[in-house]
Design a protein around this nucleic acid. Structure first.
Lengths: 332, 332
DNA sequence: TCCCTATCTGCTCATATGAGCACCATTGGC
DNA sequence: GCCAATGGTGCTCATATGAGCAGATAGGGA
């Protein structure tokens, strides 16, 4: 019965084909499927895209001590980004107290959030970039997806002011970085960024597809070297390992922007993250306390709540019905 | 789009009907549905009936400090009982160390478990009834569903011995109860029951459908009076309130069988419970530590992990995307 | 043992549905 | 302003599918 249901609904085979495969008539298959349907073996569920996964949200909050968690239902893989971005935009707009200074990172995700923010989502917000970045529109596909325009759009939609960080993300020498940070303008922006009442940021994966590689701050080889040293991804340009620690202090000393301590100290720091490739970074960020709120998709949330080591649980859970342990010791 | 999907998959309407309703053509509806399907708004899932809900199991273990939890996927309402019973049977068979003395209650659920136990599931098990009960087959539908035959079947399938408790469940006078418990046979059975290495029991709902009413130990009025005093259900014939406490000490003094302390003290006491009507009792049992293992269905498990007070969360979660609180205080 | 009933099986037929196709609208480049 | 391209719309047609029905099968009581 289960086999028939799989062949029909998952492999899209016709009932005759299944009949031939299972050596029965197509009518039997039809009836089998009907039975499977009302026995609940085939479950058809309509997912309201705006609905949330409250159970997972609660689990995340409890597991990681988060102030809040937003989990949107899993959509088609290309839609998750959009769906999570919308949720993040809604969350930001509903955030109370309304942040007076909002610190943001930049990248594809933040850009998507900015696009989906409702005009007039707030008023008198100062939107400040918290890490250095590209200034000219580099991603050809996503139109106005630059660092500057993200901040600008968020600010503009609130009728507020955008404060940009006029600096590259990563400099070639630590000395240059020190110099640029001592520049009055840059120092001012960073100070403002440090005093932000809320942060909104995403995280990047440590691989060649990183925006830092795309915009030329690092080479694919650089990133590979970081991965070998345990890097799982970057948060505001700074690469961390699975436990949330900075991987390369020398590199970090050449990176412009607020430090991770500022994020950890903030009352409200919102991580927006979606997609399977980001699961490892998401885990690192969440479990190391870099964010107090997470906005993500169902699959990521699920992955976060699974056992840390197992990467892929590979398909439906077919584990047999055996008691795992009978010691009677609850494992908190 | 969501509306169309609901009308089609949930209300079973035809595509032109939906077309008429939404003032479009049936082709548009067809395409809309196709889009909804691969966007993941309509989710079709094949549930392996033997699969388990590992996430919920973990949540239950953590929330209630259980040694183990088995949660089977929600099937059609009439099937849950069967499905949970099978899981319980499997669990019992796989339990290590194999119990030498197994204490069991009786009722529809236990009978269903007994039926599904594999012959030869264990050897040299002594199965002892832990509460008094009916002796002649009273439930007409379920064939051999009496208290005695449940124990007998479980024992027989293990090639073991059944020790029955030759006593009514509830006596009219406490004195009679004391007398019967001082009877050598009864006392011996109770002592053996108290020393069981594992318990397997279910719980009854406090309403007129209770087996205790059906078999004449109590009247519907009696039960109603108990409910008014806070009773949510009974465990081995003893009625408890939402916090797991005995509701009526006088009645309890007339009830024959082991006490709840024995269950609480046991290393392995397995609650088998299924169905919506049993959610309140299940909560009472689990949260008061009466069981160390629960075997149940998805819906019950879900209900247990929801907020205690809310009864029905009534339909899909349409709550808006607003942050619940922004105090930044994680609520453990 | 027989018979009655309930369920299952194979089949026909009407129909709901998806693939394919021509047509129209909207958009963007020149 | 014109034209190509892209995506949506209405339609036809083959077909996969569910309802309905007669015969087969099995199970259970007398």
């Amino acid at each position: 019965m289960v086999r028939a249901a799989e062949l029909y609904y998952e492999d899209g085979k016709t009932q005759d084909e299944i009949g031939a495969l299972l050596r029965t008539t197509r009518w039997k298959v039809g009836r089998l499927l009907a039975k499977a349907r009302d026995r609940g073996i085939v479950r058809i569920e309509i997912v309201h895209p705006r609905a949330r996964r409250l159970a997972l949200e609660r689990l995340l909050r409890e597991r990681f001590g988060l102030a809040d968690a937003i989990v949107v239902p899993a959509a088609d893989d290309s839609e998750v980004q959009a769906s999570v971005a919308r949720a993040a935009a809604d969350y930001l707009a509903a955030l109370r107290p309304v942040p007076r200074v909002l610190g943001i990172s930049w990248g594809r995700t933040l850009s998507a959030v900015a696009e989906r923010l409702a005009p007039g989502w707030a008023s008198e917000v100062r939107v400040v970039q918290i890490n250095g970045g590209i200034s000219l529109s580099s991603s050809p596909g996503s139109g106005a997806g630059s660092a500057a325009s993200t901040a600008a759009m968020i600010a503009q939609k609130a009728g507020g002011q955008a404060i940009l960080l006029p600096s590259p993300a990563i400099l070639e020498h630590a000395a240059t970085k020190a110099a640029i940070e001592s520049d009055r303008t840059v120092a001012g922006v960073l100070q403002l960024a440090g005093s932000a009442t809320a942060f909104l940021f995403s995280a990047g994966v440590a691989d060649a597809s990183s925006v830092l590689v795309e915009s030329g701050y690092l080479t694919a080889d650089d990133v590979e070297a970081l991965v070998e040293r345990g890097a799982v991804g970057d948060v505001v340009g700074r690469f961390i390992d699975a436990s949330g620690r900075i991987v390369d202090d020398a590199l970090d000393a050449r990176t412009v922007g607020i430090g991770h301590d500022a994020l950890r100290a903030a009352k409200t720091s919102v991580l927006v993250i979606a997609g399977e490739s980001k699961h490892p970074v998401a885990r690192a960020v969440v479990s190391s306390g870099l964010c107090s709120v997470i906005v993500t998709d169902e699959a990521t949330a699920q992955a976060l709540t699974q056992e840390p080591q197992k990467q892929h649980s590979a398909g439906p859970q077919n584990s047999s019905l055996s008691p795992q342990q009978t010691q009677g010791v609850p494992h908190a």
